[in-house]
Nucleic acid binder design. Structure first.
Lengths: 336, 336
DNA sequence: AGTTGGTATGTTACAAGTAACATTTTATTT
DNA sequence: AAATAAAATGTTACTTGTAACATACCAACT
């Protein structure tokens, strides 16, 4: 049994007894088609279940009204809010999001970018500042506007929206030192660029006040249970640890749970700090100290900027460098 | 300044001095092109940064090697694992995922389905069992295979992979009653189909043993803070509440935190149960009682089935009804 | 030299929809 | 009734890549 081919404009036209041009007009400017024809076409479309084909749009190089959004991971709660921020701007403007993820891997990112460009997305939002050479080349040649989100520490391809991870970690570490912590250990997982940047900020702050940076790092993916493990490792490696600066909230929360299981009082015996300020950390007891990052706003601004560049006549992809800093809030909560 | 148009096969051909057919051959069957031409084409492609255009694939009705995956929400952690399960099968087989979300709204789902079909996806995975008439029509006419995941309580369009939400809630409620709880209150948010199915299972179990179902419901989206609120509402509405059966882990965890803030002992003064068995609930203190659902496996099985139908010659979209039940585990943890 | 066979490359047609222009039909005016 | 304007519909050309067929070229053999 053969699959029933989906119906094209031609099929509708045949059913009604006009040319496909008339059907095309009906879809685009109904008022240019006579009342009687309109009724017949409408009925035929309902009966045959017509679905537009994107191919001609791509062919004629028209706008696809799609934007490509690349996030490293769907498990990472950070990006759900970023995406909401993007779509709250792009959706009402008639753009659909093509969402893909690449597991923090630049080679996979390259494949995803190629995929998105092969569908002629009108713009790209990337979550990384490091890319393969071919990724850079493809984007440059395609001429689509690109915005890199989350980190503004590096010089952007074209435009970046986010905050400075080094500075954020520096500020948080300084606040912890001011609170009296001295043996702060940095806890890192999935050694991606941002984890390294935060470690740098932490180290800078420690060294600035004459303390030694210490860290427990792994390339495993973050999880609550990993946070528990790394707390134990920190206490073994550095027995007088008085505070953990975790690269994200998941690790921090896992560490706090492990403290609870081992009757280590937080914050009096152990301070614990996360990064991003997720709901769960803010809802838990004790409330988690964290750097609260404006994820929704980052998405929102990125979406707005991207749209404005898509709708600009200028080729903004050439010789265009701009950084938009959305800031962050050092929030000390109850866990330090 | 005009945007630099992306290069086509024709541009490569012009640069080398052959026809685009030769370039096409180079990409598809390099051995059919002479050594010298091959070298020149390869160089030109590098220089011009050629990216394939998907349009001709769509036009010639060839397979797009894309599958559409529709999830209700990206915030809901349930689906991150489902997607991983899907892509672990479809990725190695050369399929890309077109991911979209619809905020639990059938009208938006309809738009997303239309969007995905306009890009000629080879198959669809939907997370819902209720759809608009037009959604059903479009899918039927397009002839693409569809799999509905998560719930198997309803009769599927074609094929469903998941578990029976009614039965799962019934089993959990029965386990709670066997443990001695009598005043179990059902806590529901975002009144989607699955929340209602679970409430039905809970009610059936309560009534079967002669107890009165009680519930606190809201159509707000789930969150940890909402769980805290609903705990308080349950205690106000039903002062002798001894256990909360929450429609998901987020609400349950929020409720437990609120108990901790109010010095209500869990489980001795209040049992709390969630649904889905997420990491966070399993890592926390006390470990959350929950119905552990095989989300990765659901995605995996759905992906496998979809691929097998895409690659089948038969038109499996007609007169095809199959339900694959992946089961679930009632896990009582430490919070009851 | 002429035939055969293989290799490399070219030509044409096609898929779906639309812009631009062309033609036909209908309505309105003189 | 003829002329004109306006409305409705049709025709052609174009976008990209590839299948199917056609041609050109060169080497090997009779």
């Amino acid at each position: 049994m053969k699959k029933n081919k989906r119906s094209s404009l031609q099929d509708i036209a045949d059913a009604v007894g006009v040319t496909k041009m008339t059907v095309s007009r009906y879809l685009r400017n109904p008022e240019k088609v006579s009342e009687s024809t309109r009724t017949k076409i409408s009925a035929a479309i309902d009966t045959l279940g017509y679905i537009a084909n994107k191919a001609p749009d791509l062919l004629s190089n028209a706008k696809s009204y799609s934007i490509g959004v690349l996030v490293p991971s769907l498990t990472n709660h950070v990006f759900a809010q970023v995406i909401r921020g993007i779509e709250d701007v792009t959706g009402p403007a008639g753009y659909q999001t093509m969402l893909a993820h690449y597991g923090y891997n630049p080679e996979i990112e390259e494949k995803r970018v190629e995929y998105l460009l092969s569908y002629h997305v009108d713009g790209l939002i990337l979550s990384e500042t490091t890319h393969t050479d071919r990724t850079l080349k493809m984007i440059e040649m395609s001429g689509v506007p690109v915005i890199e989100i989350m980190d503004t520490h590096h010089s952007p391809m074209q435009q970046a929206v986010g905050f400075d991870n080094v500075k954020a970690a520096f500020d948080m570490t300084t606040a912890l030192l001011n609170k009296g912590y001295r043996n702060i250990v940095y806890i890192g997982a999935r050694l991606d660029v941002r984890t390294r940047l935060k470690f740098q900020g932490y180290s800078d702050a420690m060294l600035a006040k004459g303390y030694t940076p210490k860290s427990v790092m792994t390339d495993q993916a973050s999880s609550y249970s990993l946070g528990a493990e790394l707390l134990q490792k920190a206490r073994t490696d550095y027995p007088n640890t008085d505070c953990l600066f975790c690269t994200n909230d998941d690790l921090a929360i896992g560490a706090i749970f492990e403290c609870q299981r081992n009757n280590i009082l937080v914050p009096s015996q152990m301070g614990v700090v996360g990064f991003h300020g997720h709901d769960i950390g803010q809802a838990m007891v004790p409330q988690l100290a964290s750097v609260i990052t404006p994820r929704y706003q980052i998405g929102n601004v990125a979406g707005r900027e991207l749209l404005s560049r898509i709708n600009s006549d200028l080729d903004t992809s050439i010789n265009y460098k701009q950084v938009i800093d959305t800031g962050y809030i050092v929030h000390l909560g109850e866990s330090v």
